[in-house]
Simulated assay, not measured.
Amino acid sequence: MSLTRQSSFQEQSNNSRGSLYLVGTPIGNLEDMTFRAIRTLKECDIIAAEDTRQTRKLLTHFEISPQLLFSYHEHNKSASGPELIRYIIEGKNLALVSDAGLPAISDPGADLVKLAIAEGINVIPIPGANAALTSLIASGLPTERFTFIGFLPRERKDVEKVLQSFRASQGTLLFYESPHRVIKTLNAILSVYGNRQVVLARELTKRYEEFVRGSVEECLEYLQEHPPLGEYCMVVEGTSVEEEQEQLAAWWQNLTVEEHVAHYETEGHPRKEAMKKTAGDRGVSKRDIYNALI
């Protein structure tokens, strides 16, 4: 990407063009809607929404009547994105909202932002609530460093691969998860990271807001008696300095996977057992070891 400069309010290099506003909306409690967000939605010509039915409820509550409410989501973004950019180039101001929270985080808004920047359109953020950061600040886990991971892949092997890539991260990890997958994800975290501290946050800012804090095993036990309900934000403890030092000091660090497996074979372990022990040392799945040896 070549160097660009945006001066959102001091300069307007092309007054005939509109701007793209990224408007944060409440993640539950409507009182979290900012005055600036309401004013922006009232002043914009077009509002693009991931779920227009949900957004209509919000607009009705705040008595906002846009000229056009446009559907923009993951399944139509390829066609709708360029059309929305054309409207802005023609002089329309466009506000983008997500189902809840900040647009362009775990939704197709990021693609529209890229298109706008490529066309030299001003992209103006209107801050608001965010589920991940809301969960983090109330978690009790370290906030100095953190990594937002969002939703994990569907396939178990892909889940393990993503988790492994953050295994050595000392910063707190932030995940989004649906209620029917949260137990599977906790089990995967337990398998890859061990019994770390975790916080399960749900119904944020709503009447039944809940934070469950404990080890992964304690949270799994809790969910057996209290089945998951609603969307979750999972806040997971990062690796400790001691754990990182232990990993770096591991005797097998300079061995290839093949040499690592061969080491256990020379100790008398069958090949399958040697591969299993190698996988355990490296914190990866047996399939990863198998694939590395092919």
Results as ranks from 00 to 15, higher is better:
residue 163 L to E: 12
residue 194 G to Y: 00
residue 163 L to V: 13
residue 168 A to C: 07
residue 138 A to W: 00
residue 173 L to Y: 03
residue 194 G to D: 06
residue 168 A to H: 06
residue 147 T to P: 07
residue 191 S to G: 10
residue 131 A to G: 02
residue 141 L to V: 11
residue 142 P to A: 08
residue 191 S to C: 03
residue 138 A to T: 01
residue 174 L to D: 07
residue 118 A to W: 00
residue 132 A to R: 02
residue 128 G to Y: 13
residue 192 V to L: 11
residue 142 P to M: 01
residue 195 N to W: 01
residue 121 I to P: 02
residue 132 A to E: 03
residue 144 E to W: 15
residue 164 Q to N: 15
residue 134 T to D: 00
residue 152 L to N: 07
residue 125 P to E: 12
residue 148 F to H: 04
residue 134 T to S: 15
residue 126 I to Y: 11
residue 136 L to G: 07
residue 161 K to N: 13
residue 160 E to M: 11
residue 166 F to E: 09
residue 174 L to P: 03
residue 174 L to A: 14
residue 149 I to V: 14
residue 194 G to C: 09
residue 130 N to P: 04
residue 123 V to T: 09
residue 195 N to F: 05
residue 122 N to D: 11
residue 160 E to K: 10
residue 161 K to V: 09
residue 144 E to I: 07
residue 167 R to Y: 10
residue 140 G to Q: 03
residue 132 A to K: 05
residue 184 K to D: 08
residue 196 R to S: 14
residue 184 K to P: 03
residue 183 I to Q: 04
residue 131 A to M: 05
residue 174 L to M: 09
residue 185 T to F: 11
residue 159 V to F: 03
residue 166 F to K: 09
residue 176 Y to E: 06
residue 170 Q to L: 14
residue 146 F to L: 12
residue 179 P to Q: 00
residue 129 A to L: 06
residue 117 I to C: 00
residue 134 T to C: 12
residue 192 V to G: 15
residue 191 S to M: 02
residue 136 L to I: 08
residue 162 V to G: 07
residue 139 S to C: 06
residue 137 I to L: 13
residue 154 R to K: 11
residue 132 A to N: 00
residue 177 E to F: 09
residue 159 V to I: 15
residue 190 L to W: 00
residue 157 K to T: 10
residue 156 R to L: 15
residue 148 F to A: 06
residue 144 E to N: 13
residue 150 G to E: 02
residue 189 I to A: 10
residue 175 F to A: 07
residue 180 H to R: 14
residue 123 V to Q: 06
residue 153 P to R: 09
residue 163 L to C: 15
residue 137 I to K: 10
residue 185 T to P: 01
residue 130 N to Y: 04
residue 118 A to N: 04
residue 176 Y to H: 09
residue 190 L to K: 12
residue 180 H to F: 12
residue 117 I to P: 03
residue 186 L to R: 00
residue 184 K to L: 08
residue 124 I to A: 12
residue 141 L to D: 11
residue 131 A to Y: 04
residue 177 E to H: 11
residue 171 G to K: 06
residue 147 T to R: 11
residue 176 Y to S: 07
residue 144 E to S: 12
residue 151 F to N: 14
residue 166 F to C: 15
residue 196 R to T: 11
residue 145 R to C: 11
residue 192 V to Q: 13
residue 178 S to N: 08
residue 179 P to G: 00
residue 186 L to W: 01
residue 128 G to N: 03
residue 141 L to Q: 12
residue 168 A to T: 06
residue 143 T to N: 13
residue 183 I to K: 14
residue 131 A to L: 05
residue 187 N to P: 00
residue 170 Q to S: 15
residue 156 R to W: 15
residue 176 Y to A: 11
residue 132 A to Y: 01
residue 137 I to D: 04
residue 129 A to V: 03
residue 196 R to V: 08
residue 167 R to W: 05
residue 160 E to R: 09
residue 140 G to I: 04
residue 173 L to S: 13
residue 176 Y to G: 06
